[in-house]
Design a protein around this nucleic acid. Sequence first.
DNA 1: GCGACAG
DNA 2: ATCTTGTCGC
Length: 228
Amino acid sequence: MAYYRPYHPPADPIIVRDLTRQQDELRTHVQLQPLAAEPTLVAGCDSSFPTPETVLSVFVVLRFPSLEVVEKVYHTSPVTLPYIPGLLAFREAPNLLLAYEKLQHRPDVIMVDGHGIAHPRRMGIAAHLGVMLNRPTFGVAKQKLTGVYQEPALQKGSITPLTDKSGELLGEVIRSKDKVNPLFVSPGHLCDQATATRLTLACLRGYKLPEPTRLADHWAEEFKKELR
DNA sequence: GCGACAG
DNA sequence: ATCTTGTCGC
């Protein structure tokens, strides 16, 4: 279905080199481990762009495992960087952090819209945000960034590993709903693959996207409309 | 040199 | 991500 291949405009090589080094430094702080305890509050976050020069980030907090919404906030800032594959965090994380600060509740774990360690340098936006906040995070992406995998069975719940060419596990490809494109789930920080996958499945409610990201996606779209 | 390329 | 209508399939 990918009739057109996205064209990625050339990015300033100086900026790319600097940000890439920052990722390598941040990477040394990442820790993959099970959560200290079963979560009570799970957050979801996502960003939208009301205008090409404005970022709008949303955070929603849900009680777990009931998934009832307990809070939702958003924040907007001017865009400072274009989208560059692999450097998404530097474009969206700063504003996500500002939105996070507005929360009255402290989520036990955060589900991020994007990859965790399933990244060329193992520093996707979920891992990046986790290190910045020093909080548990994992990523749920709709498209692959890097790695290889076999298509999971068409039935909901089917899972396949996402690995790099050397066989290292980067994440898991999950069919969250019958016959819909699978999701790419990977740990970010202070979380492990088993936990990320387990929570993703526990947050499904009949839709392709797990509730935290689905609702964050929804509100990112709603708040965007309100701003125009 | 040729593809791949989160949101 | 964003623009943007109808349409095919379950």
